[in-house]
């Protein structure tokens, strides 16, 4: 097991333990109403939290007792975190403005941003692709599937 994976595993164990703790405390507030016959709404979450602790312990044991191997270098197609992070940030912003700007405008911007993040630089692609695709999607969903995508304040 590489030392990087070991560190990641320990982080995973920590998250699991935190989650289990949270679930157990939250579940204590679930009121049991249907009488004695059935275990109530807190039963499953508590059981699952206990199982999570168990498996996290196993993972911790596996990690601590494994021989540490050398870190493998990143394969040629990985390790550049900026594009996906940008993608996540763009999506976050997109959902915030979706209802104000409306689907067509917001999605065109979204597509353009992702094209840029994926390395596309040709200006005509960046101009036509987003506009064409978001218009197409909007109208296909509106007319064919009768699904109303957000109109935004511009009322397209």
């Amino acid at each position: 097991m590489t030392s990087r994976m070991k560190k990641i595993n320990i982080a995973v164990v920590a998250v699991c333990l935190a989650l289990a703790g949270y679930v157990t405390t939250a579940a204590a507030a679930f009121r049991h109403a249907a009488g004695d016959n059935e275990p109530g709404p807190a039963f499953a979450p508590r059981l699952l939290a206990a199982a999570l602790v168990l498996f996290a312990a196993v993972l911790a044991g596996q990690t601590l007792f494994a021989k540490t191997a050398a870190d493998r270098p990143d394969p040629p197609g990985a390790g550049r975190f900026l594009p996906p992070m940008t993608g996540m940030a763009v999506l976050f912003a997109y959902i915030l403005v979706l209802e104000q700007l409306g689907f067509i405008v917001a999605s065109a911007l979204l597509a353009a941003a992702f094209l840029l993040a994926c390395g596309v630089r040709k200006w005509y692609v960046l101009a036509c692709y987003p506009v064409a695709s978001s218009l197409a999607i909007y109208y296909i969903f509106r007319k064919l599937l009768i699904v109303f995508l957000p109109e935004g304040v511009f009322h397209f």
């Binding site: 689907f103 992702f114 094209l115 994926c118 390395g119 695709s133 995508l149």
Partner: peptide
């Protein structure tokens, strides 16, 4: 792939919303 990924993202958004 650089052209497909933005489309997938858009369709994911639409699919989740619809």
């Amino acid at each position: 792939k650089s052209h497909v990924i933005p489309m997938i993202v858009m369709l994911s958004v639409v699919g989740s919303f619809a």
